Amino acid sequence: MSVATLLAKARSLGLRIATAESCTGGMLAAALTDVAGASDVFERGFVTYSNAAKVEMLGVSPATLTTHGAVSEAVAIEMAQGALAHSKADLAVAITGIAGPGGSDFKPEGRVCFALAMAGRPTVAETVEFGPRGRAAVRSAACVQALTLLAQALD
């Protein structure tokens, strides 16, 4: 589904979207707002690159960050729920990951965690291993995956 189609679908359902991004640094919000007229669907985006920003802007628990690390489904879930709680959106998607270069044996480069929160539905999360494709490719693939999650939620 194209971004324009995704926005049209959300518009037809009367839903507003928020984003909570870490490793993509606002790329998802930019993709959504590249479409003219997105302002009636895209409510806001949070770029929470640091752990402090995740806590301050989205209400992510410091204990969750300590226990699971920033690149985890637990943190992605709290990011998505925080984006809903701190906006007037009905649907929020969160992205946190390791775009590279680097990573570790435990959390390799290319690992990205996503969460989707929607009013009245359970929050869902997933982890995708994009692999060490390079920073730009991981970030781009993460945006595409987040758009796919939004599209699925609207179906």
Results as ranks from 00 to 15, higher is better:
S2V: 00
S2M: 02
V3G: 11
V3A: 14
L6D: 02
L6I: 14
A8N: 12
A8V: 04
K9Q: 12
K9H: 12
A10V: 01
S12H: 11
L13F: 08
G14M: 14
R16G: 15
T19N: 00
E21R: 00
E21V: 00
S22Q: 07
M27R: 08
L28H: 01
L28F: 06
L28R: 05
A30F: 04
A30S: 14
V35N: 02
S39L: 10
S39Q: 06
V41S: 03
F42L: 10
E43C: 12
R44L: 15
R44E: 15
G45V: 13
F46A: 11
S50E: 11
A52F: 08
A52V: 11
A53H: 06
K54V: 09
E56N: 12
E56S: 13
G59W: 01
S61H: 09
S61W: 05
P62R: 02
A63F: 11
T64Y: 01
L65C: 06
T66A: 15
T67R: 12
T67W: 09
H68R: 07
V71D: 08
V71L: 12
V71H: 07
E73A: 10
E73I: 05
I77G: 03
I77Y: 04
M79G: 14
G82L: 12
A83V: 13
A85Q: 03
H86A: 06
H86E: 11
H86D: 07
K88N: 12
A89H: 12
A92D: 15
I95E: 02
T96E: 12
G97D: 10
G97Q: 02
G97E: 10
I98A: 03
I98E: 11
G100T: 00
G100D: 04
G102M: 03
G103S: 04
D105S: 05
F106A: 14
K107L: 09
E109N: 01
E109T: 01
G110H: 02
A115C: 14
L116R: 02
A117F: 13
A119I: 09
A119K: 08
A119T: 14
G120F: 06
R121D: 13
R121E: 12
V124D: 02
V124N: 01
T127Q: 15
V128Q: 07
E129C: 14
E129T: 11
F130T: 05
P132V: 02
R133K: 10
A136G: 04
A136E: 15
A137N: 00
V138D: 10
V138G: 09
R139T: 03
S140P: 03
S140L: 08
S140R: 08
A141N: 02
A142E: 08
C143Q: 06
V144W: 07
Q145L: 10
L147Y: 00
L149E: 02
L150W: 03
A151Q: 09
Q152A: 06
Q152S: 08
A153W: 03
D155F: 01
